[in-house]
């Protein structure tokens, strides 16, 4: 009975994701939330919206092929998932109930490969993992991010939040100093964004290629001259989780174009 009540409570809190989370003083108000694309030129935004010319679609298309591929396993992704993946990416990262670990989309894909397809893990940032992630994320294009904090995930949320507010590197800068306090202002030729992950995996001009949110976080850390973490590490998954809760309501834009 108590267990049932606890389950109900979790379900209820999932309905209003951030209800049980105290937002910090400098948090961006929901009405002021703006996707990274709001800080790009009109031409770049148009490229992102173009259903042919957006170069990120090269990865989405590759992901679509991999999704139905049965050359290495008797089961393809599509054998289990059909239409059901629409909107799913908008709720990631989320708890993997089997391992009780918080997983992002990339990790979920690798778990699926291990558990259901008897396939080896794809390397983080490999073209194939990026492609599958992009394909799945694209199924949720336009869906508002809805990521809940539950009792099981609260520690991850708090770890991500601590990361966001900890000054690091030779510049001694924390994420919030740029992305909460100074978004919209100029830093050389750039306009500082609010630092949301809703466009990732994304095509970045600087990379001249497609990459994950973790690669972007790695670049931010390197940018402030801090020691970056490993792509796919729990530290970055926790930060990704915090960022997702912080961006609740923004539409999934992957494959976005970013500077």
């Amino acid at each position: 009975m108590i267990r049932l009540a606890a389950c109900l409570l979790i379900l209820l809190t999932s309905c209003s994701p951030t209800a049980d989370v105290t937002l910090p003083d400098d948090a961006i108000a929901t009405k002021d939330l703006q996707s990274g694309s709001a800080f790009l030129t009109e031409e770049t935004r148009a490229l992102q919206e173009d259903d042919f010319e957006n170069p990120g679609l090269l990865w989405v298309e590759r992901g679509a092929d991999l999704f139905v591929d049965t050359s290495a396993s008797s089961k393809s992704c599509a054998d289990c998932h059909d239409e059901q993946l629409k909107g799913v990416a908008a709720s990631y990262p989320q708890l993997d109930e089997l391992s009780a670990e918080l997983v992002n989309l990339e990790k979920r894909i690798n778990l699926c490969r291990a558990r259901h397809q008897d396939l080896p893990e794809l390397t983080y940032e490999s073209d194939d993992l990026l492609a599958l992630t992009a394909y799945v994320a694209n199924q949720s294009h336009g869906a508002p991010i809805t990521v809940a904090v539950t009792e099981e995930t609260r520690a991850s949320y708090e770890a991500g939040e601590a990361y966001f507010y900890t000054p690091r590197g030779q510049f001694n800068l924390a994420c919030n100093q740029c992305h909460n306090e100074n978004w919209g202002k100029k830093l050389r030729g750039d306009t500082i964004s609010q630092g949301h992950g809703n466009g990732f995996p994304a095509y970045r001009y600087e990379w001249q290629s497609f990459g994950s949110l973790h690669r972007r976080l790695h670049d931010c850390d390197t940018g402030v001259r801090a020691e970056p973490f490993t792509l796919g590490s729990q530290t970055y998954i926790d930060l990704e989780y915090y960022l997702a809760v912080r961006a609740n309501g923004l539409p999934v834009e992957s494959p976005a174009i970013r500077r």
């Binding site: 830093l187 050389r188 750039d190 500082i192 600087e206 670049d219 390197t222 940018g223 500077r259």
Partner: peptide, 8 residues
């Protein structure tokens, strides 16, 4: 061509 702020 504008110059980016955070170039890796």
């Amino acid at each position: 061509v504008t110059l980016a702020a955070c170039v890796i």
